[in-house]
Amino acid sequence: MTNDELFETVQQAQYGERQAMQKIIEAYYPLIRKQTRTLDPSTSKDFEQTIIEKIVRAVHNYDITSLPDFITFCQANTQPE
């Protein structure tokens, strides 16, 4: 997904289009799965769900009228607390 496509998809998701949110999650799902492979199977699903929840929150909280771009915003807002 290009940055322009991601921007448009984030806009659509913010307007409540569930398919757009699903498209964003699917775009990042391979990376999420890659990260969970190193975890214990009993915790990997919980970790996966936590990351997906953070992505959903980031999409809804992202101000599309400001900088940084969405990818940078997600990286800054998904760091361990």
Rank of each mutant, 00 (worst) to 15 (best):
A76S: 05
D40I: 04
Q75I: 09
R37V: 11
P68K: 03
R33G: 07
P30R: 00
E48P: 08
Q79Y: 07
L6K: 11
A27W: 03
C74E: 04
Y15Q: 07
K23M: 07
L6S: 06
I24Y: 04
T72N: 06
A20R: 00
Q11M: 13
M21T: 07
H60R: 13
S66L: 13
L31I: 04
N77K: 09
Y28G: 03
Q19A: 11
S42D: 12
S44W: 04
P80L: 04
E5D: 14
A76W: 00
P30D: 02
T2P: 13
E53F: 12
N61E: 10
Y29K: 14
P80D: 03
E5K: 14
K54E: 14
D63S: 13
Q11L: 15
P68I: 03
Q12D: 09
F7D: 02
N77M: 04
S42P: 00
Q11T: 08
L39W: 06
T2S: 15
E26G: 05
P41H: 04
N3M: 03
T65Q: 13
I51D: 12
L67D: 14
I32C: 13
E53I: 09
S42I: 07
N77C: 03
Y29N: 12
A27V: 07
A13F: 01
F7Y: 15
D40T: 06
M1R: 13
E8C: 01
I64Y: 01
E8A: 05
P68W: 02
A76N: 09
Y62K: 05
D69R: 11
P68D: 06
V56F: 06
V56P: 01
K45E: 15
Q11K: 15
A13L: 01
F7S: 08
E17P: 00
R18L: 10
L39F: 10
I32R: 12
L6G: 09
I25F: 02
N61A: 05
K54G: 14
T38Q: 15
K34G: 14
R37H: 09
T43V: 12
Q22R: 08
H60Y: 08
R18V: 09
E53M: 12
D63V: 08
A76R: 08
D4P: 03
V10L: 14
P30G: 05
Y28M: 11
Q11P: 00
K23E: 05
R57K: 15
Q19I: 05
A58S: 14
F47L: 06
I51L: 15
E17S: 03
I64R: 02
N61L: 06
E48T: 14
Y28L: 14
Q11H: 11
L67F: 09
R33S: 15
Q19D: 10
E81D: 12
F7A: 06
I64S: 03
I25A: 03
P41K: 08
L31H: 04
